[in-house]
Simulated assay, not measured.
Amino acid sequence: MYVAVKGGEQAIDNAHAWLAESRRGDVAIPELSVAQIREQMALAVGRVMAEGSLYDADLAALAIKQARGDLIEAIFLIRAYRTTLPRFGASRPVDTGAMAAIRRISATYKDLPGGQVLGPTFDYTHRLLDFALAAEGEAPVAPQAAPVGPVPRVTGFLDREGLIEPEPACDDPPPDLTREPLDLPAGRALRLQSLARGDEGFLLGLAYSSQRGFGRTHPFVGELRIGEVMVEVEIPELGLCVAIGAITLTECETVNQFTGSKTQPAQFTRGYGLVMGQSERKAIAMSLVDRALRWQELGEEDSGAPVQDQEFVLMHADNIQATGFLEHIKLPHYVDFQSELELVRRLRASAAQEAAE
């Protein structure tokens, strides 16, 4: 039970008005448009779409604007809006092998069919502030190149020689994490869903921990590709599939060592990451965590590392759940605190009395 606070509703209304004023900032400066955010903050928009489980760049940009750039708050807004949308059906699995890639690299093979395509990346920048951007001049025009694809998968080269495990089977049909609560232990399909919309920073920390020895996962990036894939839905009445649009995805397949077991020869194993938008850091981290969580099915020993603990990873990866549980302590807990305050006072008084005796 909370102590009633008089005037609370008026105070909340005032806080909302102040928030709107703070969001707008100096009215002498032109206001950011949703289109500007969508086009010029594409990586932030991609993260909000991925972790919000809703592919709509305009809505993600609107959420970023409303949240004043707080991406977790924007993800919260998108997820809340998503619950209001009707479902008309389910799309077919997308074919990432047919991706029209704008970026496609491999750390395992230098010469690839289709070539290494650097694409738009920060990898080769000097990480120096570009003060020319402050002048708000026109952007340089990049050479135009057509996306590549379809191109063969790098893991296919190893697969032909039997040097990598066969593609692990997934649950059929896969469960839907957005409609059913997470149930542990979770199959790989459900784990991948959870990781795909998990917090990027959390997954990055887990992936880094595994590289440092807490989980023994230090893979090669077999292939990283970014590009558009077609989304198709089946129309049972017509007996055909219809393409309803294209979405941008980032896919990462990692190649990991495996010394073998009594039943399996030495070979490479797979880690997998797939994320909406351009988010290669998240896709790579996801693939490392995916591989670390597969230790049981591969017959490996439990190292006790957090990244190999399914409950630890999956129950803490969701930033919206984490935010709700963390920020609820800002709410009034007056009665709870008063009871603990009285307890501390009694304990101190008892200790003082015993010391006096």
Rank of each mutant, 00 (worst) to 15 (best):
T217V: 11
T178Q: 12
A17W: 03
D159V: 08
A20E: 15
M286W: 01
S210D: 04
T125V: 08
I235E: 09
E311H: 03
D318Q: 03
I284R: 15
A15Q: 12
P219H: 02
G97I: 00
L190P: 06
Q338A: 13
R225S: 06
R87Q: 12
G213C: 08
T263D: 06
E161R: 10
T217D: 07
G7Q: 01
P166Q: 07
R24V: 05
F76Y: 13
V154Y: 02
M276E: 05
L43W: 03
G114M: 00
A352R: 11
G8R: 04
M315K: 09
G273F: 03
G187R: 10
L85I: 12
E232S: 14
E180V: 11
F220M: 13
R225N: 05
S350K: 13
A35C: 01
G299H: 08
F312S: 12
H126C: 06
R345P: 02
V27S: 10
A100T: 03
P175W: 00
R197G: 11
G162H: 09
P185Y: 03
D159H: 14
S279Q: 15
A142L: 12
P147K: 00
E327I: 11
S22L: 15
A145S: 08
A285H: 03
V117A: 00
V255W: 01
L206M: 05
E21K: 03
P93V: 05
A61W: 03
A285M: 06
R188M: 05
R197P: 06
C241E: 10
K330D: 08
A11F: 08
A355F: 06
T263W: 02
D70R: 10
L59V: 09
T269I: 13
P265V: 14
E223R: 00
A305Y: 04
A292I: 07
G222L: 07
S287P: 10
L203F: 01
D159R: 14
V307R: 05
T248V: 11
R68V: 09
A351S: 11
I78D: 01
A266V: 06
A74G: 00
S350E: 11
P265G: 03
A135I: 12
G187M: 10
L203Y: 02
V3E: 15
A20R: 13
E21N: 06
S350R: 09
G25V: 08
E340W: 12
Q278H: 13
M276K: 13
P147R: 00
L203V: 11
L249G: 04
P332T: 08
D95T: 10
R191E: 14
E300A: 13
I244G: 14
T254K: 04
L298C: 05
A317P: 04
R270P: 04
H218K: 09
A285W: 01
Q308E: 13
A349H: 01
S194L: 08
